[in-house]
Design a protein around this nucleic acid. Structure first.
Lengths: 131, 131
DNA sequence: ATTGACATTTGCCATTTGGCGAATTATAAT
DNA sequence: ATTATAATTCGCCAAATGGCAAATGTCAAT
């Protein structure tokens, strides 16, 4: 199953490395990705997964988004559309609820959503059993 | 070698799909990713590569960046220069969370906050006991 | 030329990804 | 209840990923 990688990612990554004056082993040390793998990526024999790409972005002097875009994982963004009043999903978000939740760290916020979806699925199966 | 995926990506993706009212096969048709693979991703048995993630973002109603961030491939952006997120109370309300919650009727939203505060007080007393 | 110290490439292989088709399960419709 | 039909999960497998260790290449200093 071949991937259509419009850009030559390997060359881009090698460029990043040489402009940072780093060796494969150094990048390896900084990123925790084996230098053999890095080498193969640079010469286009391997296509890094997202997590690898992420780990090497900073050492190579790329913004994460930038590198993902160059890799063809992200499509280039038309910069700043200034979406002013986001109308979330299907309905309105109650301002009180929004204010309360915003006090919490984002991972707590997400956990809340996780709990909500669990409760919903429990409710669903309970409803079915008692029928 | 199992990966440490901080967020439960599968659940997030399933949420996206159900809020878009799509079946696995529909998402499959729209994205070109096999429905069996999609199913396994949703229940956390597979971790999608970047290219898969990219193909399913739009059908599931995610911004590409957003989904990559949720997947842990991209680290959450320090709020861009002119980001126009409404700033509730003390902190930021995660857009994904906001969208998910906005799907629910307001009383459910409020109930969620109630549950959260109960959990917090439980956590607090547990912490005190074990000291 | 030879040695030593790094850097890069290769061979090998365990693990993971992702597709296809069959089996199973859920959902309607009669 | 019984089908019909759609949706999801499972079994299997080819291909790809990524690490380790050994091989090879490069270059400066003897």
């Amino acid at each position: 199953m071949e991937q259509d990688r419009s850009n030559d990612l390997g060359e881009i990554i090698r460029q990043g490395r040489v402009t940072q004056r780093l060796t494969l082993s150094e990048v390896s040390a900084m990123s925790g990705v084996s230098s053999s793998h890095l080498g193969r990526i640079e010469r286009g024999e391997r296509f890094p997964s997202g997590s690898i790409l992420r780990r090497i972005a900073a050492p190579l002097g790329f913004e994460e988004n930038e590198l993902f875009t160059l890799a063809g994982y992200l499509s280039p963004e038309p910069p700043g559309i200034a979406e002013s009043h986001p109308h979330y999903g299907g309905g309105e978000l109650d301002p009180y609820v929004a204010r309360m939740l915003a006090q919490e760290p984002v991972d707590v916020q997400r956990a809340v959503i996780g709990i909500l979806s669990i409760l919903k699925s429990i409710a669903k199966s309970v409803a079915k059993e008692s029928r």
